[in-house]
Amino acid sequence: MSDLVFPAPAPTRLSVVGSSAAFPVGRVFCIGRNYSWAVGEPKPREMPAWFMKPATAVVPAHGLLPWPPGTGDFCHEIEMVVAIGRGGRDIAPAQVEPHHVWGYAAGLDLTRRDLQQQAKRAGGPWEAAKAFDHSAPCTPIVPVATCGHPRHGAVWLAVNGIERQRADLSELLWPVPELVAMLSRSVALAPGDLIFTGTPAGVGPLAPGDVLSAGVADIGRIAMTVDRAPAPVLAVHPSASPHQETFP
């Protein structure tokens, strides 16, 4: 007899490149401002702010992208994603890549920008702006054994064939070892955690029917079309079918 009052939700999983196994998603951490958005902008002295999305926000980064409810300003942000394979607290930066990073992916940190602006003005939390359904599309995870630890390569995004965002991984203000170490000083990381590492300049609004394409180095490519249809109900049972903006 089950000791649960109802069946537990199905876990969120991501495909793994070159494997039939899946990567089980735990928590999703998103790094704020981590690229220079203006020529000559100095590197900040403090690590960027971070926020979270639920694991259920993670979906495959292809096909239709549902328009989220409650917004008139739905914005894109392309990012490299770090997949954690071994957890820990107070991790030293030099230990991050050899011992804690399992792989990498390309992801979108989608934002209801109008709700984010409202939250800023009120000094309130960002969950409504960031943590909605389907807000973290992600490509399959590429294991470190396949791609190594990428330090160079284009991070780009185009809408309807017109490029909006472009940078290089070498331009991250705080690279992966320092970001992961920073997070581990605040919360104990665990296997399955995903870390979205920040987006370049050029974030902007999407419209119904827009065709979005994006990529990160040789790690992953995204191809999605914005749809006005409401997002499908998330599976909750193991047998269910599974404009320029300044912010921290």
Rank of each mutant, 00 (worst) to 15 (best):
P200R: 03
P175G: 11
A10L: 14
R164L: 14
A92D: 08
Q117C: 07
C147Q: 06
K43R: 14
A167V: 02
G107F: 13
I31W: 00
A55M: 00
G192T: 02
V176T: 06
W67I: 00
P200I: 00
V58A: 08
G124Q: 11
P44W: 07
A122C: 10
H237L: 05
A190H: 05
R228D: 06
P137A: 03
N160M: 04
P175C: 09
G123D: 13
H149P: 04
E41L: 10
T139I: 11
L14P: 13
P150I: 00
G88Y: 08
L234E: 05
A235P: 15
P238F: 13
H134L: 01
C30A: 09
G148F: 00
G204E: 01
M52L: 15
G40R: 08
R151N: 08
P191Y: 04
G215Y: 09
V142M: 15
P11I: 03
V96Y: 05
A217K: 06
V16C: 07
T225F: 04
G103N: 12
P98Y: 03
I195L: 08
H76Q: 15
W174S: 10
A55Y: 00
P42K: 08
E127N: 09
Y35S: 01
R113L: 05
E178T: 01
I31H: 02
V17T: 13
V211I: 15
E79I: 05
P24F: 01
V233T: 13
D3G: 05
P98D: 04
A229E: 03
Y104A: 02
G204W: 01
L212H: 10
L172C: 14
S20H: 10
Y104K: 10
W67Y: 13
C138N: 13
V216G: 04
P137K: 04
A106M: 10
G26A: 06
K53W: 09
T246Q: 02
P191R: 10
F196S: 04
I195H: 03
Q117V: 10
R45N: 11
G70I: 00
G124C: 03
L172N: 11
L4T: 11
P9F: 08
V236Y: 00
V142R: 15
R113H: 02
T12Y: 01
A105D: 13
I219E: 00
Q117A: 12
T12C: 09
S186C: 14
R27P: 05
P24T: 15
R121G: 02
P205T: 06
C147Y: 04
